[in-house]
Design a protein around this nucleic acid. Structure first.
Lengths: 221, 221, 221, 221
DNA sequence: AATGAATGAGTTTTCATTCAT
DNA sequence: TATGAATGAAAACTCATTCAT
């Protein structure tokens, strides 16, 4: 049978720097996702990483900088996941569809990353609010482009009932909210979530394009 | 002759307890909304309230409890604002419409309260996540009832493309996201936001009800 | 019999702020003089002061600022001691004489202050080197004025063998060095030290004034 | 053809031990003189030396010991410089004159060494204060012997106005102070400094020898 | 009722120092 | 020999919280 691993609990084995950096980042994401930025302690991170605090400081900087590394790595991951999932040679609705599926794929695969990005990065203070806002802005812009291109190509005049950016913001929020909801209902398949969103929003959008508009049936006070 | 009032210069005037509590809560909401739970300091709150720290502790408890009071008061306000805006004797879409307008009315009137509830309550740690989640769950349930009643009364069988709760969660998220977006685009009228949402989602929902369904145009791998 | 003092060793009695500030400064000077800036710990200072660390930070700032307060207070003391000891209506030599006596009086009365100023302030890093250099420059300038006035009034042309500033610097250094020496020979009276200095330097200076010059008896190299 | 040397790029060449030790000591003196003992970091020393930290520890010991090596080497240098400059077969004043010139020669040639010895060794804590005090005591004793021999040979009875040791201490302090002053006025020739000192102090000393004494013109309170 | 004065307890951060290769 | 990798230990500092007046 396989020989028991040599456990020298006192001193960590010597490992090349990139490996240690990954270990530390993984631990940091885990702890930050569990407690949030402020309640996470460097002590716990170093425990989870199996590495002493000075290593963390030496490799990835102080707490704020460490958090920054986490946010950047996970943002990158999310962007790449979505970008890789979307094909440019299909109609806008299918692009959106693929994008949503990729997004939920990411959320499923990197639950903790998503929690850090979505729940904790905004309240950490420092420059992170801006980074996250920028990330979100990219997502909104992407969706807006899809929506607008789909609209204009079919002659959607600019109406009061329509706003590419506003609707994109709404859609992104809906997708995020559903992701949150999903965390508590994990038995739903990711494709189903995406399907709900498409049916809820894209159909409505199509109606708009075709001139059907919802208006309040009585004067709004 | 001039009456020689005993002037103890810095000493706050004796005020009835409810007035003091309001002062403190207002200050707390302001400070919490500005810095978030963890970065807000009791010192700053007492400064802004114009009241010494021991008063805060004696009237409203420790930091966590104080934050709880804030969250509860503002939740209450939000719920009442929406409840008061909605009339039960109109069709579901109009109920939703009124609810949305009331919601945005609240966000406009109580910007700071909204920020505390939406952005900071989840990351405070402690029991607040649950309180906020409960509040949100109430909102989702409300919307879900609207959606479901509108659906069933028109014979919407349960399809894979439909989920009352899921869609309600999505809609609530969309509304919140638009509220956030609004904070950076304050020149848009609140009715317009509500209108966008109605058109984006309700029309799509109507399509569903009437049997129009969006499906991917190619097998989703 | 006298009632035993109420000793509540845990919590310090409530005292007005200025009193506490003095306590803290005294303790800080003691500890800084004993260990120097870097080896002094805030913990020890708070112990010696009989006050918790947060009070120190709240009243007198962080370590560097605290040290600054010490340096400034003791500089002030030294300057005042010398200024008060010197009378303007006497000849330059007597002014110097009185200044020296006052200086040694200060060193005797405030041994620790002198050690902080002379030995530790220069190596603390930060802005203290400059403060101390400035203090010393003031002393040198004072002495230089005495020397120069004494010299010019008796027609001392500028010779290579003479430099008001240089000699003042030398004299100040001699005085300081003797102060150090005194720390290890405390049985010498302060007036004696001043007398030595006057005889060593002022007589020589008088010689210069009267045209007697020392020159090497063989070509320098 | 180009010889493909095995290049292990960062690895320092194997060097004989004394060379390495010199490298390290030079770097240490540089860094200590720049930052003082406490603010100097072993990291910076190893950087400047171009040698890894474990080498330093293995060759010259821990920080305190390393500093000790620096202090001893530079003390030695200073002593030798002065000793080599002084000739025993000349009158005392000329011996002093040569000693001073040698001293200033050393300060000019080994600025950093002087700074370490004069400014930083006293505040390092540990045994260095004593070493430096001992060094200084040797200098004082040397000067005292000169002074005393010059005095006794010309029949200077022990008067209150005279003290071989005290005056030597003063003279040494004056010389040091002038060395400091020189650091900020580098355009003065070293011979000039020595000349100032001789004229300031030696003439005065001669006066003493010849019975001229300075006394306060009014009773010293 | 109201507060200035005071602190316990915890955190981040930075060294000098040493393994293990 | 020579070093990158690793850490123990201790420092400064900052809160929320409470006592005594």
């Amino acid at each position: 049978m396989a020989q028991d691993v040599q456990r020298s609990p006192e001193r960590a084995k010597r490992l090349p720097r990139p490996v240690r950096e990954k270990q530390i980042l993984d631990a940091a994401v885990e702890v930050f996702s569990r407690h949030g930025y402020h309640l996470a302690s460097m002590d716990e991170i170093s425990d989870v990483a199996g590495v002493s605090k000075p290593m963390i400081y030496s490799y990835l900087g102080a707490k704020e900088e460490l958090f920054g590394h986490c946010v950047r790595r996970e943002s990158q991951r999310l962007l790449e996941a979505v970008r890789d999932g979307v094909r440019a040679d299909v109609p806008p609705d299918m692009q959106l569809w693929h994008g949503l599926r990729s997004f939920y794929g990411f959320v499923a695969a990197y639950r903790e990353s998503w929690i850090v990005l979505h729940r904790h990065a905004l309240t950490a203070g420092g420059p992170f609010a801006e980074e996250i806002t920028a990330l979100r802005a990219r997502a909104v812009a992407l969706v807006r482009d899809l929506v607008v291109s789909a609209g204009t190509e079919r002659g959607l005049a600019s109406q009061a009932e329509f706003s590419g950016e506003g609707m994109a913001a709404a859609l992104v929020g809906a997708a995020e909210s559903l992701a949150d909801w999903w965390l508590d209902h994990p038995d739903v398949a990711d494709g189903v979530l995406a399907s709900w969103l498409m049916n809820l929003t894209w159909l409505g959008f199509n109606d708009l394009v075709e001139g059907r508009v919802w208006r309040p049936t009585e004067p709004a006070e």
